[in-house]
Design a protein around this nucleic acid. Structure first.
Length: 223
DNA sequence: TCATTAAATTGTT
DNA sequence: AACAATTTAATGA
């Protein structure tokens, strides 16, 4: 995607809005560009907006006290996130970092709150979104118990969640280094594990990307 | 269109 | 972490 307008057009929640509602949403939102490695949000910051990814790839992560980085989720283009902190009026619970150069759309909290009151379609969208995320986080609990193959399979399966990330097709531009960041393994180990998964017929590796052949297989993979 | 070069990514230790 | 090999993208003749 190239523009804020395109992102809105591709978003399920926008389809249910009236022309007038859409007009206000468009007027209130802004887009910002972040270079690779930059913080989009910092943990502990007050959450002032709902975020959508126009282009690029973000990760939601947190640094534990002992210095280890735990990644909760990768967020590809077309996805929206951050509703949890807005709904509870609390500080951001995680860091948001651009894994590659990315463009992000920001909806001010006031607009978000207004949509919540004004649109049933918007509420429905958030309900599904929150439910899908709950599923993701339940899966996260056992993430550390899995082999590197299992972790990567799990991370990819969540990234190819059609409900949360409608912009992600079967083949996706994603380097092995990025897969490593999302899965919590080194690039070297990611490279090794990815080829095991390819041998198992679950995905196909290409230069600079992957094609997922069997999402369910990845989700169920136990290594 | 082809050749050259730089940058990105992968494969391996 | 470092290094070599491979692929892609960009450039200019």
């Amino acid at each position: 995607m190239d523009t804020l307008e395109e992102l809105i057009g591709a978003s399920a929640w926008a389809a249910g809005l009236s022309a007038a509602q859409l007009a206000r949403v468009r007027a209130d939102m802004v887009a910002r560009q972040f270079p690779a490695g930059a913080h989009v949000c910092r943990r502990g910051e007050p959450a002032e907006s709902w975020l959508g990814v126009i282009d690029g790839l973000l990760k939601l992560s947190s640094d534990s006290p002992d210095g280890r980085t735990v990644t909760f989720a990768g967020v590809p283009a077309g996805a929206w996130f951050g509703e949890g902190s807005l709904l509870k009026a609390e500080a951001r619970r995680y860091d948001v970092i651009a894994l590659r150069e990315s463009r992000v759309a920001l909806m001010p909290r006031a607009t978000f709150a207004w949509l919540l009151d004004a649109s049933i379609a918007f509420n429905r969208f958030l309900l599904v979104q929150l439910n899908e995320r709950l599923g993701q986080f339940i899966g996260l609990v056992e993430h550390r118990l899995l082999t590197p193959e299992g972790r990567i399979a799990r991370s990819l399966a969540t990234l190819f969640n059609a409900q949360l990330y409608p912009g992600v097709g079967p083949s996706f531009r994603l380097s092995q280094e990025e897969i490593g960041y999302l899965s919590g393994v080194s690039r070297q180990r990611a490279n090794q594990a990815l080829r095991v998964l390819e041998q198992a017929g679950l995905l196909r590796l290409e230069y600079g990307g992957v094609t997922v052949m069997d999402v369910e297989g990845l989700r169920r993979y136990e290594g």
